[in-house]
Design a protein around this nucleic acid. Structure first.
Lengths: 141, 141
DNA sequence: CCTACATCCTCTAGCGACTAGAGGAGCAAG
DNA sequence: CTTGCTCCTCTAGTCGCTAGAGGATGTAGG
C-alpha cells in the first residue's frame, strides 16, 4: 500500500506548519484527507505535493483566492492557461508598484537620517519631517 | 476663540479617514478631544497636526507602537533624538529587505511568464513552476 | 505492563490595522 | 417640517495565520 503520511510529516515535507495545514483544510483550500482508526489525518503524496504548491504560491505573495483558482487550473490540464497568466501578471504589477513605493520610501528615510544632527529632538529633522509632510521629498499635495 | 474642527473636517485636513480617527482614539494613539454640547468631537489644530504626523508615519510604514514612541519624543523636545534615529534605521533595514525579496520575486514571476507558451495548462510553465519549487529560480533547499 | 513524552485532535480567541454596517441622534438648508 | 448630511456608539468582519486550552492517541524505554 501507499505510505502513511501524518500531518507532522506532511508539514516537514511541504514546509507548511501543522496548524496552517489544518487552517487550509478549514477554509477549503486543501481537501480533507482520509483519517486513520485513531482519527488522525493521513495524507497521500499528491496532497503533500498540493501543499508544496500552495506554499510556493504563498511565498510568491499570491492570495488564497488566487491560489484556489490556480489549483483548479492545475486539476484540469486541458484548460487554456490564460487565466493563470493573468493572475501572474496582476501579481507582477502589484510587486512592481510595491517596489516603486518602497524605493521612494527608502530615499525619504535616508534623507531623514542624513539631515538628523544627532542632537536633541528640538532640532531633529527626523521628527520634523514626520510632522511636516509638506517639506518631505514627496512634496505638497 | 479658536476654530471648531469636526471629525469630518479633521479627516479632510489630515487625510485620515473618520472611522480610523475614532479607532486611533480608542487604542490610545490620539487623545480624546473635547466634545460639543451635542456630544461631537471637537478637535484643536494641534490635534489635527498630530493626525497628519500619524498619517505620514503610517505612510512610511511605521507600526502604531513605533509611532507612539515617536509622538512621545515629539512632545519632549529636549530628549536626545537617538531613539527616533533607531526607529528609522530599523524601518530602513526592513524596507531594504522587502525591496530585495520583492526584486527576487519579480524576477521569478517574469521568468514564469516568459516560459509560458500560452497554450494549455498541461504544458504551462506557470503552473508547473508553482508545483515544482525545485525547478524555480531559487533552486533547491 | 507502566510510564513518559511526542504528536495528534477540536475548539476558541488573538494578532494588526483597520473597515463595514446597524441603529439612532443632531443639525443646517430649503 | 422635512430632507439629507454628518455625527454618535457598538459589534463584527477582514486576511492569513498563530497561540493556547484541554484532551486523546501513539511510541519507546524500563
Amino acid at each position: 500500500m501507499s505510505e502513511q503520511i501524518s500531518i507532522g510529516e506532511a508539514a516537514r515535507r511541504s514546509g507548511v506548519k501543522v496548524p496552517t495545514i489544518r487552517y487550509y483544510e478549514q477554509i477549503g483550500l486543501l481537501p480533507a484527507p482520509e483519517r486513520t482508526e485513531g482519527n488522525r489525518r493521513n495524507y497521500r503524496k499528491d496532497e503533500v505535493q498540493r501543499l508544496a504548491f500552495i506554499r510556493h504560491s504563498r511565498e510568491l505573495g499570491f492570495e488564497i483566492d488566487a491560489i484556489k483558482t490556480l489549483l483548479v487550473l492545475q486539476d484540469d490540464p486541458n484548460q487554456p492557461c490564460g487565466t493563470a497568466d493573468q493572475i501572474v501578471i496582476a501579481r507582477l504589477q502589484d510587486v512592481d508598484q510595491r517596489i516603486n513605493s518602497l524605493n521612494a520610501l527608502k530615499v525619504e528615510l535616508e534623507t531623514m537620517l542624513e539631515q538628523c544632527s544627532h542632537g536633541r529632538v528640538k532640532e531633529c529633522r527626523v521628527i520634523e519631517t514626520l510632522a511636516n509632510h509638506d517639506r518631505c521629498i514627496h512634496g505638497h499635495h
